[in-house]
């Protein structure tokens, strides 16, 4: 039996005027879990996050954060939020801004150490107006780390960050999850979240169309696995003919097969003996899965 989820969303409906922007969303998030929330712009990711934060009220369904309703004192204490393209008053320094957030949340952390942790040690006493976008994002992350949140909602956390900063950010997210925080990351950066999350939920036009581990999503989607063979000498044509694959350059052949047929196909290739010099197996990437789930027509 698993523990109670930190975040539990049940059949959430949200309307903007007469347009329904969220359709019966169900979502659960457990302690220490990292969930990637994917979807096109306008798919409803930000609306969902705002609903969880209690910034907007949904018309139907329920949200519970550690048993509390969104927007209540208990829910706000339990939740940390990093908005997309986070911004602060330019006249304050990073240190002053973080201190203000700490006072608001009633925490008494070591502000300087926290800013060091996110790489703002040098800049903490400079005005935020002089910060780069990446530095503001780091300051935003620092306020997420104030007082161990039960739930962290990160909206496009890596936007505007250079590759090294992204690595740092995911290292910090891993730390958060390791201390038991349930982390939800809304993102467009598919290749990043692929390796850095435990579960992936995909939204399309306000509905959740997928919610599983990467492996689970692959199996459900039944997308073909790509086998790429390198043939010895001039055997490529023969191999292509025998395996039903496709020549892609001088000495290589590409075969597409379903995940279920993968082992059978490998045995068949092994039987070809010396004609095959090398083989690479390319499982479907999140890119392919995302395209599969987000383009599928609604049934």
């Amino acid at each position: 039996m698993r523990d109670e989820p930190i975040l539990k969303i049940s059949s959430l409906d949200k309307f903007r005027g007469k347009t329904q922007v969220l359709h019966g969303i169900d979502l659960e998030l457990y302690a220490g879990e990292r969930l990637a929330l994917l979807g096109h712009n306008g798919a409803g990711k930000s609306t969902l996050i705002k609903s969880v934060l209690g910034l907007i009220n949904a018309e139907g369904g329920t949200i519970s954060i550690c048993g509390a309703r969104p927007g209540t004192g208990a829910a706000r204490v339990a939740t940390a939020f990093l908005p997309e393209a986070v911004s602060f008053h330019p006249a304050l320094t990073g240190f002053e801004q973080l201190k203000t957030f700490a006072r608001l949340s009633g925490e008494k952390p070591d502000i300087a150490a926290l800013l060091q942790r996110v790489g703002l040690g040098e800049a903490m006493h400079r005005r935020i107006g002089a910060y780069s976008k990446g530095m503001r994002q780091r300051l935003g992350l620092a306020q997420v780390l104030l007082g161990r949140p039960k739930l962290a909602l990160l909206d496009e956390p890596t936007s505007g960050l250079d590759p090294i900063s992204r690595q740092d950010l995911y290292a910090i997210i891993d730390e958060l999850a390791a201390q038991g925080t349930a982390v939800l990351i809304a993102s467009h950066a598919l290749t990043e979240v692929e390796a850095r999350t435990d579960r992936i939920a995909i939204m399309r036009k306000g509905s959740k169309v997928a919610d599983d581990t990467l492996a689970g999503l692959s199996a459900q989607a039944g997308l073909p696995v790509k086998l790429r063979l390198r043939a010895s000498g001039d055997q490529a044509d023969r191999i292509a003919l025998e395996t039903g694959g496709r020549r892609i350059n001088g000495a290589s052949v590409e075969i597409l097969c379903t995940p279920q047929d993968k082992m059978a196909e490998l045995r068949r290739i092994a039987a070809l003996g010396d004609a095959v010099v090398d083989i690479d197996m390319v499982p479907p990437r999140l890119d392919d899965l995302y395209r599969h789930y987000s383009n599928e027509e609604l049934n």
């Binding site: 705002k50 934060l53 209690g54 910034l55 004192g73 706000r76 204490v77 939740t79 940390a80 939020f81 908005p83 393209a85 986070v86 911004s87 602060f88 008053h89 957030f101 608001l104 949340s105 009633g106 935003g140 306020q143």
Partner: peptide, 16 residues
């Protein structure tokens, strides 16, 4: 001002 700057949403998620 806070809303246009984009800092209001974050502020409102704090316990105050």
């Amino acid at each position: 001002g806070d809303r246009d700057r984009g800092s209001l949403a974050l502020l409102l998620t704090y316990p105050a």
